[in-house]
Design a protein around this nucleic acid. Structure first.
Lengths: 163, 163
DNA sequence: TATTGTTATACTCTATAACTATA
DNA sequence: TATAGTTATAGAGTATAACAATA
């Protein structure tokens, strides 16, 4: 039984320095890392990681991408993507085919099983989001999203939502 | 010159999947990790890490903490805190004194130099925050803070701002 | 020679587990 | 025996660099 228990702790939980709690970047960093870790745990229970979800989601939007493009778009290293695709291919969720016009390139595409797995991933993410944002109502979530998106898009073009 | 350059890129930057960009938890995770990495870089240039700032900020609020209390409050492992305090003590920013009533305990307190370093850390964090939240005005930053705090406090008592 | 995908290597961070000295 | 602090060890995750095939 530790201090994070739901029961009233014998010793009151010490608060973080006000200075930190008042800082937007501190909260952003802490929450961001926390949500990432929770996501990793959730995906791991199904034998995957969050990156696998990103790859499948990207492939569904624009089929037949080369590995280089997938890696650059998602912001993962090309060498890292190899292992992710191996994992997905072994489970029959994606297919790799050499581009006949340039046999260095691999054209990656989603299989039917890949689409079904993507649906499962979406359910997982919805659950995670509902749990993590539990104290916020719909309006607040929309506001939070708007502010985060504005911040992200300012730093990185890839976040700009095109019409 | 890479694709993240400010110039108009020859090849248009591929967008992330809309599905991801529309997810609050995805943005939160990405931005959180990004701001953490930027903070680490900034602190590193002064020969420290973000944790050192947390320790100094905590010590200023409530002096003469034991190491266990500091570690639990900040959420770092006790064994990790040892190295952080070594680093700070070598530079004369904190002092460790054995508690005469229980010689297992170390009482840690801030020195005058520690206070001055804390002031420098604060300037660094203000700069980081201004840079990271550049696209948001004062009202938006306040709203973002409110929403993040509400989310964090719901998950972890240590974030509850006491009057 | 440059590029695509791949493999191998190294390094950082963290989590865990032993160890000491005190209680 | 249990606790506070310390040290040592091992693992995951990531970044870097070498490599093979093709252009």
């Amino acid at each position: 039984m530790n201090a994070t228990s739901l029961e009233t702790p014998a010793v009151p939980v010490e608060c973080l320095p006000r200075e930190l709690v008042k800082s937007v970047v501190f909260l952003l960093g802490r929450l961001g890392v926390a949500v990432k870790m929770e996501a990793i745990e959730e995906f791991e229970q199904e034998g995957f990681g969050p990156w696998h979800y990103g790859v499948l989601a990207l492939l569904e939007e624009g089929a037949r991408q080369t590995q280089g493009k997938i890696a650059d778009t998602l912001g993962v290293d090309r060498s890292q993507l190899v292992g992710l695709l191996d994992h997905l291919e072994e489970r029959g969720l994606v297919e790799r085919r050499r581009d006949p016009n340039d046999r260095r390139r691999q054209m990656v595409s989603l299989t039917a099983a890949g689409h079904r797995q993507l649906a499962r991933f979406r359910k997982l993410v919805r659950r995670l989001e509902d749990e993590f944002l539990a104290p916020l109502n719909e309006d607040e979530r929309a506001t939070l999203h708007k502010l985060l998106l504005k911040t992200a898009a300012h730093r990185d073009q890839r976040y700009v939502l095109t019409a």
